[in-house]
């Protein structure tokens, strides 16, 4: 476990837990895309199938449980909680996310490390995570308001991806045979998606103006 990966996991943890706590505290999910949250819950469900059959470490197991619990809790709050669900911006969060689930599933069937159920599900979760943020970015563009709830969420998610790329570079140079093309390519695609948002986020932060994404 290197520092980049630990920092990446912690940043990822912060992004999800902070979002959950904020939704729980202010009883509102304004600006949050339910589609993205559902995609993330699916990513964790598909990726952590080996939770009880493949023990890596206590840290690994605890983090998987926290990610599963927090992502499904956020989806529950946005769909079922009597107060929070009313603040969900249904008419703007219209990204047809099955248009990205199906191609990811097909791609996972074609490109995987081994053609077994768990490996295909793992590859599916990697591809899906790369594009899961799209509905959220589309919603931010549409509503053009980025209150700190979603701005910080996307920012932390982007930071986690950058840290993971640094982790892969570090592991590539320190561990022989550490080659994971599937994670690397999908991870780079995912990080590029955030680059655009980062650019506007940092400009708005520097000029101390409200973040406006171009239409």
């Amino acid at each position: 476990m290197n520092l980049f990966r630990l920092a990446g996991d912690m940043t990822h943890l912060v992004s999800v837990v902070v979002l959950l706590l904020k939704i729980h505290t202010i009883k509102s999910c304004a600006g949050v895309s339910l589609k993205t949250q559902e995609l993330y819950a699916l990513v964790f469900a598909a990726r952590y199938l080996d939770l009880f059959v493949h023990f890596v470490s206590l840290y690994n197991t605890v983090m998987k449980l926290v990610f599963l619990a927090s992502s499904f809790s956020i989806v529950w709050y946005m769909r079922k909680h009597k107060i929070v669900r009313r603040t969900y911006d249904r008419e703007h969060d219209t990204f047809r996310h099955h248009f990205i689930v199906l191609p990811c599933l097909v791609l996972a069937l074609l490109i995987n490390e081994r053609f077994t159920f768990r490996e295909v599900m793992w590859a599916f979760s990697i591809y899906l995570e790369a594009v899961a943020i799209l509905p959220q970015l589309v919603l931010l563009q549409r509503t053009r308001n980025i209150d700190n709830l979603t701005g910080q969420y996307v920012f932390f998610l982007g930071a986690y991806r950058v840290l993971y790329i640094l982790n892969w570079i570090y592991r590539y140079f320190t561990e022989p045979h550490f080659v994971h093309w599937i994670s690397w390519i999908a991870g780079i695609v995912q990080t590029v998606l955030y680059a655009d948002f980062f650019y506007y986020y940092i400009i708005s932060w520097k000029n101390n103006v409200k973040l406006e994404l171009p239409a």
Binding site: D9, H12, S57, M63, E113, Y164, F178
Partner: peptide, 10 residues
């Protein structure tokens, strides 16, 4: 081999 390296990352 490198293909079936354990999935030790989250």
């Amino acid at each position: 081999g490198c293909l079936d390296a354990p999935k030790d990352e989250l």
